[in-house]
């Protein structure tokens, strides 16, 4: 922002080029995420056929111009399945990250702002973080049963503590600042303090964490569905497609290689975006070339 403000004589186009050069990560990441979101939204127009249309005559066909990613054991077009799978995988990622923002955010806010609550709340969060994410998610899925709603719940519980930690630490920093003290002195109530002063100023690390949790959730859904404890197999998601393809790994490698690129593309895009935003927000790096 300061860079742009300092150079008012440049045209908009040149400013855009300069921004793109400095913030390559953000630009490339946004591009990658946007394309996959567009693919998901316009799936019926992008996909050449229905994701569940059987064509037993053309089963296990390698990639060709008629079937871009090849076909599976039931003759279904893998490209169409990946395109429709984007809808489910992105929806899971978005819902999980949103739930983490709300639940983890609320916990972090309470722990950071009301000191007596800090100990008990954060110990609960630590408890959830004291075993590997995937194990907690598997355990929750075993309890809840495999379904689309349950995978969102399981992954949200798994990743919410991360958000709580980030929100807590940024609230802890902000609440000690002079302007919060000033607002308190002027008689602002807690709700106003939080809404007007603390939350807006603690926002940037939270946005960064949000993109990372979005990425983790997509990886998490894929892993759980791949293990067969996630989304039911009839719903095409990137995880279920890879799980089905695994059986034919010796005969039809395209079933596992190509759909994986969809996950890689999306998660890489989200990570580039998150890293880029963090660099932009970091006052130490601001104004320097982004590396």
């Amino acid at each position: 922002m300061t860079d742009l403000a300092r150079t008012p004589q440049l045209s908009r186009a040149r400013l855009a080029v300069r921004f793109a050069n400095r913030r390559r990560g953000v630009v490339i990441g946004s591009f990658m995420v946007t394309t996959i979101v567009l693919v998901a939204i316009f799936a019926p127009w992008v996909a050449p056929s229905s994701p569940n249309a059987f064509d037993v005559v053309n089963r296990l066909q390698p990639p060709s111009t008629s079937a871009l990613f090849g076909t599976d054991d039931l003759g279904r077009d893998i490209f169409s399945r990946v395109v429709y799978g984007a809808r489910v995988s992105l929806a899971v990622g978005f819902l999980v990250s949103f739930a983490c923002l709300v639940v983890g955010g609320a916990f972090g806010l309470l722990a950071g702002f009301y000191r007596p609550l800090d100990g008990p709340l954060m110990r609960v969060m630590d408890g959830f973080m004291s075993f590997p994410n995937i194990v907690l998610a598997i355990l929750l899925m075993a309890t809840l049963g495999a379904s689309l709603e349950n995978i969102v719940i399981a992954l949200a519980i798994t990743y919410a503590p991360r958000m709580a930690r980030v929100v807590r630490s940024s609230v802890l920093q902000v609440r000690e600042l002079t302007y919060v003290e000033a607002a308190t002195a002027l008689g602002a109530r807690d709700a106003r303090l939080l809404a007007r002063h603390v939350v807006p100023n603690a926002l940037s690390p939270i946005i960064v964490q949000w993109t990372f949790i979005f990425a983790y959730a997509i990886l998490g859904e894929a892993s759980l569905s791949f293990l067969g404890v996630g989304v039911p197999p009839e719903i095409p998601t990137w995880g279920t497609i890879l799980n089905e393809g695994r059986v034919y790994i010796q005969r039809a490698a395209w079933l596992t290689v190509l759909p994986g690129f969809a996950i890689l593309w999306t998660v890489l895009g989200l990570n580039l975006l998150g890293d880029g935003i963090r660099d932009m927000m970091d006052p130490h790096l601001r104004g320097k070339e982004a590396s």
């Binding site: 894929a222 290689v257 994986g260 890689l264 990570n271």
Partner: peptide
């Protein structure tokens, strides 16, 4: 390193198998 945090473990494993 960025690739490392973005690739699903099981997919990398499947590619190594292939």
């Amino acid at each position: 390193a960025l690739l490392g945090v973005s690739i699903p473990e099981f997919w990398l494993a499947l590619n190594l198998v292939i």
